[in-house]
Amino acid sequence: MKEINQMTLVFEGRSVNESFARVTAAAFLAQLDPTLQEIAEIKTVVSEAVTNCIVHGYEDKPGAVRMKVQIFEGGRIRITVSDKGKGIPDIPQAMTPCFTTGNEDRAGMGFSIMQGFSDKIRVRSFPGRGTTVVMEKYIGGRKEKTDA
C-alpha cells in the first residue's frame, strides 16, 4: 500500500481531549469526501481507542496519547492510537464483548465497536510499557455514489 498523506497528533490523556482527537481525525480524513456514516464510524473508533488509553492505560493519571492517521492509495486508511500506560495483560479477554475492568460507567463494548466499525484491527500490548491499537478501513466516500 502506497501512503499518500499522514498526520500525527500527540496530546495529554485528558478526557476533554477525546472530542479533540476524533474531530481532528475526521477533519484530516475529510479530503477523502467520506459519507456521514463513514465520518460517524471514524469518530467513534477514535473515541473508543483514546478513551481506553485514558481510562485503562493511564487510569486517569497524566500521560501522552499518540494518534497517527494515514491515507493510502485507493481510499484505504489506517488509524494508530497508542499510549505508554500499564498495558493489557490478556488481550483476548479485553476484546470480549461486555468485559470491562472499568467501573459502572464503562460498558465493555469499546473493542467490539472498534471491530465492528473497522475492516481490520490489531492490538499490541506489553504490560508496563503500553498499548497500540491499529485500525484499517476503506473509505468509499460520496464520489462513488454521485458518479454512478
Partner: peptide, 16 residues
C-alpha cells in the same frame, strides 16, 4: 450528535 460506548453504559446504568 455523537455517541460512543459510553452511551451504552449510560443507558445500562439508568436501566439498573
Amino acid at each position: 450528535d455523537f455517541c460512543d460506548s459510553s452511551g451504552i453504559a449510560l443507558v445500562l446504568g439508568r436501566y439498573r
